[in-house]
């Protein structure tokens, strides 16, 4: 079963995503997609590490091609987060756009691969769709791709939540009691 947790920045997505696996007794794997470059990324990674320190997660750092992560059968997985994953897949380290015929299909395919290996999959994805700013062409494509991936995951997932200032709002699908 797959569940999508979205929301704005600092809306409590990760903490809620982790709590969804609180009662899970099997192996819990945390796929971290953020590259540890720069002071801000480093402090964000540290903050998240502290947050899940006592929650028995094994961290697997994987910045692209998440379908390749080795997952013991029956594990629960948190993918954190789709925003970084898409940026890593779309842009090279210098910011140059990587060639890919269909980025949405590539990432949805990787997620499907991942979901067949684990019993529970929680995907954290940022909500970046309500901004007044005009983005550059590349960033606009990024936003559109992310929205499409979110929608595709929502189709295959059991349920979607949006976090608002720490409050998980149930958007649709089956609720977490069935998760």
């Amino acid at each position: 079963m797959t569940i999508l947790v979205t929301g704005g920045s600092k809306s409590g997505k990760s903490s809620f995503a982790e709590s969804l696996l609180d009662g899970f007794s099997g192996e819990k794997i945390y796929i971290a997609t953020m590259k540890p470059y720069g002071e801000e990324a480093f402090s964000a990674i540290e903050r998240h590490r502290k947050m899940r320190k006592d929650k028995n997660f094994r961290t697997a750092e994987k910045y692209t091609d998440i379908g390749e992560v080795k997952i013991p059968l029956g594990s629960a997985v948190i993918l954190e987060c789709l925003g970084n994953l898409l940026a890593n897949e779309m842009f090279k380290d210098g910011g140059e756009v990587r060639e890919c015929a269909d980025m949405v299909e590539k990432i949805v395919g990787d997620i499907e691969k991942l979901s067949t290996k684990c019993s529970k999959l929680v995907i954290v994805s940022p909500c970046v769709f309500s901004d007044f700013r005009k983005y550059t062409v590349d960033t606009a494509v990024y936003v559109k791709n992310l929205a499409e991936i979110n929608r595709r995951i929502a189709e295959i997932s059991g349920c979607v939540y949006e976090c608002v200032y720490g409050i998980p709002v149930f958007i649709g699908g089956k609720n977490e009691n069935n998760f």
Binding site: G7, G8, S9, K10, S11, G12, E40, C127, V128, F129, S130, D131, F132, R133, Y135, T139, Y142, V143, V164, Y165, G166, I167
Partner: peptide
């Protein structure tokens, strides 16, 4: 309080910090 965190990560560091601060404060209030 407005919901302000629903855009792509801002280019300016001060904007990023502002967004973080509002998010954290909002979570405490909620």
């Amino acid at each position: 309080i407005d919901e302000i965190g629903c855009g792509v990560v801002p280019v300016l560091k001060s904007d990023r910090e502002y967004r973080e601060n509002v998010g954290r404060a909002g979570c405490i209030i909620a």
